[in-house]
Nucleic acid binder design. Structure first.
Lengths: 192, 192
DNA sequence: GAAGTAACCTACTCGCGGTAAGATGGACTT
DNA sequence: AAGTCCATCTTACCGCGAGTAGGTTACTTC
């Protein structure tokens, strides 16, 4: 089988196994077996277990980025753009459980040699948000813009994890919660 | 050596090793050796490597909770309480690197049997935030309050990770960034 | 048909999480 | 004092899974 095809196949299988069992519990032997290939092949293609996870994560991140970029395109106001982006994100969480599960596992690589690469992949995400926001907030303070983007990304990730535990909460509702805080802030809803 | 004392000693050593090497790279053999005790002792006390990490995390979480609770006590307004809480958090991140590093590693337990326990420990954190906020925002919608607390916690965690990469950014500055968004929201800084 | 090479496998090493089976030594009975 | 419990602790091992050494097949290219 040609290299490119095998590679895609391996990533697909690995994605399923990592998502199903978790990074730690997944074994290279099992992945190899499910692909129908011997273990050294996996190492030939990805060098290490981390490397394989990394490849899976890259793919999932790319999918998420594509979805959000498309969602944002064509928005007319800042509020609209942000709302569309958030909605696309939360829909992604709900509909592509496997990819999202993968993205959550990236934390398993903290403290490993792949940590930098992971951080870089995340960076693309925050950059996208930063670009979105800097059109509408005061973007003159580079550092501050960066921080606010991290803030938003972190908030939404946590919200996504939370929403997984609440089947009855639709992406629209979660988006509403997020917009409440993001757009209006706490102050405007203060009771005192 | 009496049990309680040994236990504390083991946790202290493990905390240092986990923080230094990361969960995956840390070995029970090394921890045992540094404690000056044999490996089965660790298992006698904590049952598994996960169990040991869990004990370390519990301790670090407790420390963080104490600090933030103290900081919030005595605040007069909602804004003041939240600002004090945030500041205490970001100072904690900077001054107690080891404890914070531990808390970041809790993600390494995703998909393991300890995941629920971890989630429960986090819950205390979000509960604290929820309590703080529900005094000041519309707390009638239970679900929404919960979501907003998750939002805030996630945002601050991510901001904390970000601030680690920027030595020049003081806790006061980060707190300012967070308050900007949290309190005022994006709208009030819109340029259009 | 020889030479090169891409795709692949069998069979192994080794480090580490986890455990079985005792050894040591102090406290408490009789 | 001798016996007996129990907590603390150790040596010596197991099995699994990441990672590798070295060889085989089979297809291209000249």
């Amino acid at each position: 089988m040609p290299r490119a095809e095998r590679e895609r196949q391996m990533i697909d299988v690995a994605e399923a196994v990592f998502a199903e069992l978790g990074y730690a519990a997944a074994s290279m032997d099992e992945i190899a077996e499910r692909v129908g290939v011997s273990k050294p092949m996996l190492y030939e293609y990805f060098n290490s277990k981390e490397g394989l996870l990394l490849a899976c994560i890259r793919q999932s991140r790319a999918a998420l980025r594509t979805v959000t970029e498309q969602a944002v395109t064509g928005a007319v106001t800042a509020e609209d753009a942000i709302r569309r982006g958030l909605l696309a994100f939360f829909v992604f969480i709900r509909d592509r459980r496997q990819a999202w599960s993968l993205l959550r596992q990236e934390m398993a690589l903290i403290g490993t040699s792949a940590a930098d690469e992971i951080e870089a992949t995340r960076q693309q995400q925050t950059d996208l948000i930063a670009a979105l926001m800097s059109d509408y907030i005061d973007g003159s303070d580079q550092l501050r813009t960066e921080a606010l983007a991290e803030f938003v990304v972190g908030a939404c990730e946590r919200l996504a994890i939370w929403s997984e535990r609440h089947e009855e909460v639709t992406p629209e509702i979660v988006t509403g919660y997020a917009m409440d805080l993001l757009w209006g802030g706490l102050e405007s809803r203060a009771q005192h």
